[in-house]
Design a protein around this nucleic acid. Structure first.
Length: 887
RNA sequence: GCCCGCGUGGUGGAAUGGUAGACACAGGGGACUUAAAAUCCCUAGGCAGGAAUGCCGUGCCGGUUCGAAUCCGGCCGCGGGUACCA
């Protein structure tokens, strides 16, 4: 008998599927459809184990649904715009377009050997003009529908490179290339009006029954609906035009504990003061240092500046509060102004302590007074005693206190109750080259005018005339392109300038699922195809997309419905969501001359040395010694890295604990080596077998070989069975095992319990191998095993299926059904617990009455011994499960 | 900082209120072999014990329950997100 050779059988069956057109999705009205989608990858150039895991999971579902008779759509494409392409051009020269399409070709070549059931005829990249042109058309429709507008927004500004930085490019408040202290700067930017949909996006979460609760909870918190009071303080000694300061508070019940008013450094009053007062200007400049992230703002030291302006308390005009400019107040949320109640807010407490402001409790715990070493911040649902309340009962919950405070204030003409959302509008402008151009034109006479649809796509220029675009110069090359910006105004025809901002890449990924239903259509979507294929029945992706990508997609589907590009039923585009865990890996780094980290690929790590000073260390194996820099034996990337850093074999590197695999940290593992050594089925089997799919998995190289051995064993056992002939005595035990496996594996696949399903498949394979049943029974069992394994190890399964005389392709064979009669056991083993600890077990008929079970239990030796002649306090019998004797 | 998760043998993990450690990996022992590889069989949470068995045990502390890895509260550690990484 020949050896198990994955490379031979895998290419054979991939060809067979291709020739049969097995994975071509067709709109077949006679069949129910099933749309499986995995989040499409960014074309970094190399697939990694995370991709293998993600796409294998989707493939299991797709193949299983095909076997169940569905018309399946399982497409693949590329999230191809984004910063890494520009960074590559900056570092190594070349063009983002060439880099991206080259990477796509490489990654496609790496993915195809996996044998995924993908309809490659639908493939596209978001950087294809055919794709982003349709996106521009929708943008124009959305602009007309009032879903897009312009306003000022704050960006990270690198004052040395004179360019806008992404949050990722700000490290410890400094620009990643220049090292300059980053400032916050205002620019006019394009926005989607997602905030108009806050209520809708929130309430519609309740209908997403097949989404993980944690994702819905994260989105609820992100949207952040709150009810509060908006009112104005009258000012004293304020500049003209500022006789009132509007504030918003979610805790109006603490109004009698107010001790200061805080305004954002971007508040109109702060700006007014700044323009006349150097000290204020200096303070505001200080506040604007650092990055724009919420994290940077929230964790920065809380700073305040006393403006000298006072406000009058609305309930007591003789009570005056100071007005501070404070760095932690966001202009984007509420009114950009708050009142602080230090007794019941930890941040305000620290602020008041720092600036020596009064701390006046408004309420206390019902079981005694709280000390004032920190703010007393109970849950709103908790009952407290108000000592400085002004509305409602003295003892009430915080929530009741808030509601009565709002009612009281409205009745007394102090402000009004309002509902606000934390969700901000979606800023889509990017001052970058490698993105979808925003299709508008700036005309001196007509203002901002959308491009005519017949002029779409507004294509990115490849070069500056004949000169290559220089990406090494900071800033957006579109801004300094000699001719691209120049155009005719679509409205009046006079010379005008194109918008040079491109779109956030989240726009690209907010509708690709819809485009896959008709990827070559001359319009963004095709109504019939969208009607048939939408919604995505199963969407699979990483938990890191729980908020932004998934929320933006939900918004975009609504915007597409309003502009006529999607049917009403598709406003929630993803019926079911599964968030797989990430593949993580340790990170290896050395430091450059400035102490900045330089990361290294795991494949360049030779071994661990022992822990030194509590820090784990590893050494490099670059295949490079100082003497040997032979380009024939060392890959170009490694050589470049090695020579740039002066690294060589044995060089010691720092290791830091596992984190999400990311290209920038270089903690990525290359699956290509594994596929070459063991075959795709082994890689697929391995990524499914070892971890629950929703959990992160730390990649370790060991284990792939074990998967390979097991598949070889299955292949061998199948081969043995294929050569045997003649009926034997059917073995009921084997048949029962087979039906139990059908049931368990089917349930496992349906519930994303792939690792548990794999364990059951190990069990079935072991049972078949050890069974003494006749050849025919074992052949039938092995054919079922091939079917059950086929979503996971499709090539091996086809081979076995054909070896054993199965009809046609295993992928076309109907999924086996478990006979319910075969799943029922006649007798059950009941553990007997004494005081909750297992002490014995008895075997009883399945339907034995409870009283009989009790008798048997009490007659059990261990129970008799433990009772020592006494009576049990309690006897619990859970039929079919357990007996517990309480003594 | 804030929001959301996760934490079980040497390792990956199973069990989602009912026998903790299924199924594997690495390990140990054995069979086959001149030998090795491959394959097959046995063993395996910790401690004590020759064994039967007993005690301990799911990050830590406390609670609910006849019964908790599982539910609740508090803490510790790690990870994801934090609106310009995708």
């Amino acid at each position: 008998m020949s050896r198990f050779e994955p490379s031979t059988i895998e290419s054979k069956w991939q060809t067979a599927w291709e020739q049969a057109g097995t994975f071509t999705a067709t709109r077949d009205p006679a069949k129910d459809k099933y749309y499986v989608l995995e989040m499409f990858p960014y074309p970094s150039g190399r697939i990694h184990m995370g991709h293998v895991r993600n796409y294998t999971m989707g493939d299991v579902i797709a193949r299983y649904k095909m076997s169940c008779g569905f018309s399946v759509l399982h497409p693949m494409g590329w999230d191809a715009f984004g910063m890494p392409a520009e960074n590559a051009a900056m570092e190594r020269g070349g063009h983002p377009k060439d880099w991206t399409y080259g990477n796509i070709a490489d990654m496609r070549d790496q993915m195809k050997p996996l044998g995924l059931s993908i309809d490659w005829s639908r493939e596209f990249a978001t950087c294809d003009p055919e794709y982003y042109g349709q996106q521009q058309a929708m943008f124009i429709d959305m602009l007309h529908a009032g879903l897009v507008y312009r306003k000022n927004a704050i960006v990270n500004w690198d004052p040395v490179d004179m360019t806008v930085l992404a949050n990722e490019q700000v490290e410890d408040g400094r620009g990643w290339r220049s090292g300059a202290l980053v400032e916050r700067r205002e620019l006019t930017q394009w926005f989607f009006k997602i905030s108009d949909f806050s209520e809708e996006l929130l309430s519609a979460l309740d209908g997403l029954d097949n989404w993980p609760e944690k994702v819905k909870l994260m989105q609820r918190n992100w949207i952040g609906k709150s009810r509060g009071l908006e009112f104005a303080f009258g000012t004293v000694d304020a500049p003209e035009g500022f006789d009132r300061i509007e504030v918003y508070t979610t805790r109006p019940d603490t109004l009698m504990g107010a001790s200061f008013v805080g305004i954002s450094p971007d508040h109109p009053l702060a700006k007014q003061l700044e323009s006349h007062d150097d000290k204020v200007a200096a303070f505001c400049a200080e506040c604007r240092k650092g990055g724009t992230t919420e994290e940077a703002i929230e964790t920065a030291e809380k700073l305040g500046y006393d403006t000298g302006i006072k406000v009058r308390h609305p309930f007591d005009t003789s009570w005056e509060l100071p007005v501070y400019i404070a760095n932690f107040i966001l202009m984007d949320y509420g009114t950009g102004a708050i009142f602080g109640c230090p007794a019941h807010d930890q941040r305000d407490f620290e602020f008041a302590t720092k600036y020596d402001l009064p701390i006046t409790p408004v309420f206390e715990p019902t079981d005694g007074a709280s000390g004032l070493t920190e703010a007393f911040v109970p849950l709103k649902s908790e009952t407290v005693r108000y000592v400085r309340g002004f509305a409602g009962e003295q003892v009430q919950t915080g929530e009741a206190g808030v509601n009565s405070a709002i009612d009281f204030c409205e009745e007394n003409g102090v402000g009004h109750g309002v509902t606000k959302f934390r969700l901000r509008d979606w800023g889509l402008s990017r001052q970058r080259y490698w993105g979808c151009p925003i299709p508008v034109v700036h005309c001196e006479d007509c203002g901002v005018v959308p491009e005519k649809k017949e002029n779409l796509p507004v294509e990115l220029p490849y070069d500056n005339g004949n000169e290559p675009i220089d990406f090494a110069v900071p800033g957006n090359p579109l801004d300094r392109h000699p001719t691209w910006r120049d155009c005719a105004c679509p409205s009046c025809g006079k010379p005008a300038k194109r918008e040079t901002d491109t779109m956030d890449t989240f726009v690209d990924s907010s509708w690709y699922y819809a485009r896959f239903t008709a990827p070559r259509a001359e319009t963004p979507t095709n109504a019939e195809d969208a009607e048939y294929w939408m919604n995505v029945d199963q969407y699979i992706g990483g938990i890191e997309h729980a908020i932004l990508h998934l929320l933006y997609s939900r918004f975009f589907a609504r915007a597409m419905q309003i502009t006529g590009h999607l049917p009403k039923k598709a406003v929630e585009p993803f019926d079911a969501l599964f968030t797989q865990g990430m593949v993580t890996h340790e990170i290896y780094l050395t430091r450059d001359e400035n102490g900045r980290p330089v990361y290294h690929l795991p494949e360049t790590i030779l071994e661990y040395t022992s822990n030194v000073d509590g820090k784990k260390k590893a050494v490099l194996k670059l295949g490079v010694t100082r003497a040997n820099m032979d380009p024939k034996t060392v890959s170009a990337d490694v050589l470049t890295e090695a020579s740039r850093q002066g690294l060589f074999d044995g060089y010691e590197v720092e290791t830091i604990p596992s984190a999400k695999m990311s290209k920038s940290k270089k903690n990525v593992v290359d699956p290509v080596n594994i596929i070459q050594a063991f075959g795709a089925d082994t890689a697929r089997w391995f990524v499914l077998s070892d971890s629950p799919p929703e959990r992160d998995v730390e990649w370790t190289a060991s284990g792939a070989e074990a998967a390979y051995k097991h598949l070889g064993r299955v292949w061998r056992v199948a081969g043995d069975i294929a050569t045997q002939e003649g009926a034997g005595k059917g073995d009921e035990e084997l048949t029962r095992t087979v039906h139990k496996a059908i049931h368990d594996v089917t349930m496992g696949i349906e519930s994303f319990g792939f690792n548990a399903a794999v364990a059951k498949l190990y069990g079935l394979a072991n049972a078949i191998q050890k069974s003494k049943a006749g050849a025919d029974a074992r052949r039938d069992a092995m054919k079922v095993l091939a079917q059950l394994m086929s979503p996971m190890t499709p090539h091996l399964s086809e081979e076995i299926w054909s070896m054993l005389g199965g009809e046609g392709l295993v992928i076309d064979a109907p999924w086996p059904k478990a006979d319910p009669k075969m799943l029922v056991e006649d007798t059950v083993t009941l553990p007997i617990q004494i005081n909750g600890k297992r002490k014995a077990e008895i075997s009883v008929a399945k339907d034995l009455p409870k009283e009989e079970v009790e008798k048997l239990a009490l007659a059990n030796d261990a129970v008799v011994k433990a009772l020592a002649g006494g009576q049990p306090k309690k006897l619990i019998v859970v039929p079919g499960r357990i007996i517990n004797v309480v003594i």
